[in-house]
């Protein structure tokens, strides 16, 4: 069962009278529970593709299905509601809310978006804090954390609402190599634990090697798909 299905997906940006074809018609399937990466040089369209899967942007051609729903025709409101329940985000710059503690940042989607009851929130957050190894830092503000710690909190925030898909656009670009590997490891452990589909982008070959499925993009086109032997 593929959780993402792309058929002839296109994205053309129009800025004034200049048209940029960011994605020039791509086809791919990503099975549920994948640990997949889009790789490619700068400007190849990785972010554009992830944004479309994450319903932050709309394709200008083709069809794109996420978790069984055609997301191509979403209004902004529909897209927000879909993201709230189905998609988790991890950002390159961590994007934690600076006025909230570690605990509150993880709690945010459950309170402000999904409006879950308090005892359910408590249990879920406690478990995630253990998973990311930050149980003793729950009361700290983001400004008191290292980059790697921030990204771990961001991973927990992306997972807390039990989304089917977590998207991470260059999650390791602002981290040193060792920390980057620990984050990718954490993401894979979470995939193993919850079965959540993880899709990330990177242009770092070492990080790329950690993915089980790799989609190589160049100039808006898919040039190669690599499947790790154990996952064929």
């Amino acid at each position: 069962m593929s959780i993402i299905t792309a058929r002839a997906v296109k994205k053309t940006y129009v800025a004034g009278d200049v048209e940029v074809e960011a994605i020039r018609g791509v086809d791919f399937d990503i099975p549920a529970g994948s640990f997949a990466a889009f790789v490619g040089p700068s400007g190849s369209g990785k972010s554009t593709l992830l944004n479309m899967i994450g319903c932050l942007d709309r394709p200008t051609g083709g069809t794109l299905e996420v978790a069984g729903t055609d997301v191509g025709g979403f209004t902004p409101k529909q897209a927000a509601a879909f993201r709230a329940t189905t998609i988790g985000f991890i950002f390159q710059d961590f994007n934690l809310l600076p006025v909230l503690t570690v605990y509150e940042n993880i709690e945010y989607p459950l309170v402000m978006v999904q409006k879950r009851p308090a005892d359910e929130r408590r249990k879920r957050i406690a478990a995630l804090l253990e998973d990311i190894g930050m149980a003793d830092q729950a009361g700290k503000l983001p400004s008191q954390l290292s980059g790697g710690q921030k990204q771990r909190v961001a991973v927990a925030r992306a997972l807390v609402g039990s989304p089917q898909v977590v998207l991470a656009d260059e999650p390791t670009a602002n981290l040193d190599t060792a920390t980057a590997h620990r984050i990718i490891d954490l993401m894979r452990r979470m995939r193993d634990e919850f079965g959540t589909t993880f899709i990330f982008s990177t242009h770092d070959p070492k990080v790329m090697a950690e993915a089980e499925t790799t989609f190589e993009l160049e100039d808006g086109r898919l040039t190669r798909t690599t499947q790790e032997a154990s996952h064929v």
């Binding site: 994450g54 927000a80 509601a81 993201r83 709230a84 994007n95 809310l97 989607p109 402000m112 978006v113």
Partner: peptide, 16 residues
């Protein structure tokens, strides 16, 4: 603006 982008991406309703 970026914080607004973050909470909007996460799915915070415009009314909130």
């Amino acid at each position: 603006i970026r914080e607004i982008g973050t909470i909007a991406a996460i799915g915070t309703p415009p009314g909130t």
